[in-house]
Simulated assay, not measured.
Amino acid sequence: MIRAVLIISVSFFLSGCGEGYPPQSNGRVVQPYTPPPTPKERYQQHVAIARSARYRKKRLLNKGEERLFRALVKASKANDYRVFSQVSLGEILNADGDAFSVINSKRVDFCLTDKNFYPIAMIEYYGSGHDDETSKERDEVKKKAAENAGITYHVVYERNISIMDQHIREKLLPKLALTRNSNRHPSSAAEL
Rank of each mutant, 00 (worst) to 15 (best):
S25H: 14
K40A: 13
R70F: 07
R51Q: 14
A78L: 11
A145G: 05
S85Q: 07
A177G: 03
V108T: 14
S88D: 07
T113A: 06
M164W: 00
I163G: 15
N160I: 00
F69R: 15
T152Q: 07
F110M: 05
K77E: 12
L192N: 09
K136E: 15
T34W: 00
H154A: 07
K143D: 02
K77I: 11
G127V: 03
A149V: 08
P39I: 07
R59W: 08
V73F: 02
L72A: 08
R107M: 08
Y81C: 08
F100T: 13
V47D: 03
H167A: 05
I120K: 09
N26P: 00
V10W: 09
V141Q: 00
E19W: 08
P32N: 09
A75S: 14
A190K: 14
S88V: 06
F13M: 11
N26V: 02
S11I: 11
R67W: 02
Y126H: 15
Q44M: 12
S85N: 13
G97H: 06
E140H: 09
G129E: 13
V47L: 08
H46K: 13
H130K: 01
I49C: 02
K58F: 14
I120L: 14
L14D: 01
D132P: 04
Y55K: 04
N148T: 13
Y55V: 05
P36R: 01
L172R: 05
Y33H: 11
G18A: 02
R184H: 11
K115Y: 12
R59N: 12
P22W: 02
Q31W: 02
S15V: 03
S52G: 09
N116R: 12
Q31P: 01
N79M: 06
D109I: 01
L68W: 01
R42P: 01
V83G: 06
N94I: 14
P37C: 01
A4Q: 10
N26Q: 10
F110W: 02
E170T: 07
V156D: 02
F12T: 03
N94T: 15
V83I: 05
K58Y: 15
N148D: 13
L72T: 08
N104M: 09
Y21I: 01
S85K: 05
I2D: 11
R138S: 03
R54K: 14
K74R: 12
R180G: 13
A99Y: 09
I168S: 09
A149T: 10
